[in-house]
Nucleic acid binder design. Structure first.
Lengths: 141, 141
DNA sequence: TAAAATTATATTGCACACAATATAATTTAC
DNA sequence: GTAAATTATATTGTGTGCAATATAATTTTA
């Protein structure tokens, strides 16, 4: 009869710990680009979409405006993105990449490879992990 | 040839998202005990160990003193833990549970079950997930 | 069509998370 | 035995995360 309330028996704790470990592994590579991990996530979306409302961006990266608004302002200060209210609907703020933001993709392209090496994971482990994690994540809706 | 720099091709992003989703699922249950998720992790350790130095606690939950010191002070204010410098070595601060902190375990024992139901995961999924995550986590040392 | 409801973003407040630095106590090396 | 190095915790500063609330614009409804 094992103790449910023991750290070593928790499933969520390793996920929580791994998530932070991942961000820490990204850090040196992202430092070179002067961005943080959540900012990198925003860039990953914008490199595909060019222009998106704050709310749509939030749906993609699972972050709300309380997190995104100040984050986007910091990215604006670094001249990576521009923010401007839609003229059609003035409630909406459209976010788009600046030339500097677009150009950053060139420096970022080697990051996925570097990260995998840094974390010493095999593609097989990654795929298995992604499959299980996404299956659970999709249940949350 | 798929784009490595696409959010849907990232493995780390789902883990990052799932970790936050987990904390959000814990929130309503932990709110009842007036604690946060990292505070819950500290309690999980202390319910086993009774007394531990700040540094040892940090090794268990993978948090450094910049996070732990203020967190423990908040727990002290809520009278869940006590902190006192070791007389043997005055650099060391020993953390232990107060009677209130010990008693909280009774209210916490139902949380693991509640969480699993809340997240709609099967024990099989959990075990598979834990195995893969821990394998990768252990590589980081 | 004007009040009510909804929508989109912003603000505030609190609690992490972590790098960098500081401080104080203990060990070590000479 | 004392200066230097190490160890343990604390502090500071920046950047998330997220709940709760605010604000302003648009849409719905009576």
């Amino acid at each position: 009869m094992s103790d449910q309330l023991a750290l070593e028996n928790q499933v969520c704790f390793p996920i929580y710990a791994l998530a932070r470990e991942i961000v820490n592994h990204y850090r040196p590579f992202l430092d070179e680009l002067d961005i943080t991990y959540p900012q990198y996530l925003v860039l990953l979306v914008l490199w595909k979409e060019t222009e998106l409302a704050v709310g749509q961006l939030g749906e993609r990266v699972f972050l709300d405006t309380g997190t995104l608004t100040p984050l986007l302002k910091r990215m604006q200060q670094k001249e990576l993105v521009s923010r401007q209210r839609s003229t059609q609907d003035e409630r909406i703020v459209m976010v788009s990449l600046t030339p500097k933001g677009i150009k950053l993709k060139e420096q970022a392209c080697s990051i996925p490879q570097k990260l995998m090496e840094s974390m010493q994971v095999t593609p097989e482990e990654l795929n298995l992990l992604k499959e299980v994690v996404c299956r659970i994540l999709n249940k949350q809706k």
